[in-house]
C-alpha cells in the first residue's frame, strides 16, 4: 500500500445553511495523477476478477450444500442441540421421575412438569411433560441438570408448523412411573399403571389454557415431528 500517503487530520468549521458545523477532514485518495490512477484501478480490478474467476474454474472449492435434497445424508455433530425428547430405556419406558428440576433450571419457563399421584403405586409420578418449543432457547440446561439422564436433545430440526400452538408438546406417551419401577412389575400391573397420553391431547395446546377467542386444539393432529419418539 505504498501508493497512499497518509497525512494529519485537520479540523475546521464549515457553514451549512447558515449554521457553523465542526468538521474533521482527512486526506482523500487523490494524490495520484490520472494515468497512474487508471493503471492502479485496472490492476486491482483485474486482481479481483481473477480471484472470482479462479473460484469459478475450480469445482473443488464449491461449498454449496443442497439442503432439502441432501436431507437423508445430512450429518450432525454428536452434540447438536435440537428437539427435546424424553429418553426411553430399552423397553420403551421413559426414565423421568417427575422431580421438576428441569422446570426450575429452565431460564424461560419452557417446561411444565405436571405430576399426579399414581393410581396403583400411590406415589408421585409423571402425568404430563409439557415442553414449549416456541419459547425454548435450546440452551441445554434442562438436559444438564436432569439427575436421571431422562432428557436428551435429538437432531430433529425441521419443526416448522403453521400454528404456533402446535409447538407445545406433551413429550411423554403415557402417564406413569419411571422405567425402573415399571420394569419391576408384572404385565398386568404395568398396564394398570400406564395411561396413554397424546402429543397434543388434553390441555397441552396453549399450555393448558383456552383463551376466549382461541379454542384448545382437538385430539391428535398428524404431525411428522412426533414420529421419532415412541
Amino acid at each position: 500500500m505504498g501508493l497512499i500517503d497518509f497525512s494529519k487530520l485537520k479540523s475546521e468549521t464549515r457553514t451549512f445553511a447558515g449554521k457553523p458545523v465542526n468538521v474533521t477532514i482527512g486526506p482523500r485518495f487523490n494524490k495520484m495523477g490520472v494515468p497512474a490512477k487508471v493503471v492502479f484501478s485496472l490492476k486491482s480490478l483485474m486482481e479481483g476478477m481473477w480471484l472470482t474467476l479462479s473460484y469459478l474454474l475450480s469445482p473443488s472449492t464449491v461449498v454449496t450444500k443442497e439442503y432439502p435434497e441432501n436431507r437423508l445424508t445430512l450429518k450432525f455433530p454428536e452434540r447438536y442441540r435440537a428437539t427435546l425428547r424424553l429418553t426411553n430405556d430399552e423397553n420403551g419406558f421413559f426414565k423421568c421421575t417427575g422431580c421438576k428440576m428441569c422446570e426450575r433450571a429452565c431460564p424461560n419457563l419452557s417446561i411444565k412438569v405436571i405430576t399426579r399421584k399414581g393410581p396403583v403405586s400411590d406415589k408421585m409420578e409423571l402425568d404430563r411433560y409439557i415442553w414449549r418449543q416456541d419459547s425454548c432457547t435450546f440452551c441445554n440446561s434442562c438436559v444438564q441438570v436432569c439427575p436421571f439422564k431422562a432428557l436428551n436433545m435429538t437432531h430433529d430440526f425441521e419443526n416448522a408448523v403453521y400454528d404456533r400452538r402446535l409447538l407445545i408438546y406433551c413429550l411423554n406417551r403415557y402417564a406413569g412411573p419411571a422405567a425402573g419401577i415399571l420394569a419391576a412389575q408384572d404385565e398386568e400391573t404395568r398396564k394398570k399403571m400406564m395411561e396413554p397420553r397424546q402429543p397434543y391431547g388434553g390441555n397441552v395446546p396453549m399450555n393448558g389454557y383456552q383463551l376466549p377467542y382461541l379454542k384448545a386444539l382437538p385430539g391428535k393432529p398428524a404431525d411428522p415431528a412426533q414420529g421419532s419418539n415412541k
Binding site: 497512499i4 485518495f29 490512477k37 484501478s41 479481483g48
Partner: peptide
Amino acid sequence: TGNPILINRLKG
C-alpha cells in the same frame, strides 16, 4: 483491502 474503489470510499 487494496481495492481503489474501497479506498476512495473509506479514506478520509
